[in-house]
């Protein structure tokens, strides 16, 4: 159970209990994407606001397991105030890390590196990626 303990002990519990950027603004200039995993009930909405090529805001709202909810919070904190290109690059490298694929380790994942342990639990990769995928769609759709 060591690997599970490590997974939960890091930033995950902290963000699960105290989520950052939680709550949607639902205003003009924001783009919203809702993703659901009907098999387990994870349900996340991510909202982004891009100004002058910078991800000005990333907000989220929803319900699900601790991996899903905490990763939405960590994602919002990691990607906020990054240039769009940089944010998408971090997102790509994060998803590669979850899938245990070769990745560019020079790309700094910040707190999101905590989810490196998820690859040991293939059934949970979806939980850890759902918010990030919603972010990707929100950016693409708003472009």
């Amino acid at each position: 159970m060591d690997k599970l303990e490590r997974l939960y002990r890091q930033v995950i519990m902290e963000h699960y209990k105290n989520p950052r950027n939680k709550g949607l603004k639902n205003k003009d200039g924001y783009h919203k994407v809702h993703i659901k995993n009907p098999s387990c009930g994870d349900d996340i909405t991510v909202e982004t606001k891009v100004e002058d090529g910078i991800v000005k805001e990333v907000n989220h709202e929803g319900s699900g397991c601790s991996i899903c909810c905490s990763s939405a919070s960590v994602m919002s904190e990691t990607l906020k105030n990054k240039p769009v290109e940089k944010a998408l690059q971090i997102k790509d490298e994060y998803l590669k890390m979850l899938m245990d694929k070769d990745r560019d380790e020079t790309v700094e994942l910040e707190d999101a590196i905590a989810y490196v342990g998820v690859k040991k639990f293939p059934a949970r990769i979806k939980c850890a990626s759902i918010a990030w995928k919603a972010f990707e769609r929100a950016i693409k759709e708003s472009e």
């Binding site: 599970l4 387990c40 994870d42 699900g64 397991c65 601790s66 991996i67 899903c68 639990f121 949970r124």
Partner: peptide, 12 residues
Amino acid sequence: VHPHDAITYFDG
């Protein structure tokens, strides 16, 4: 505890 968190423990 969300059931999806719990299930990973049992799987272990």
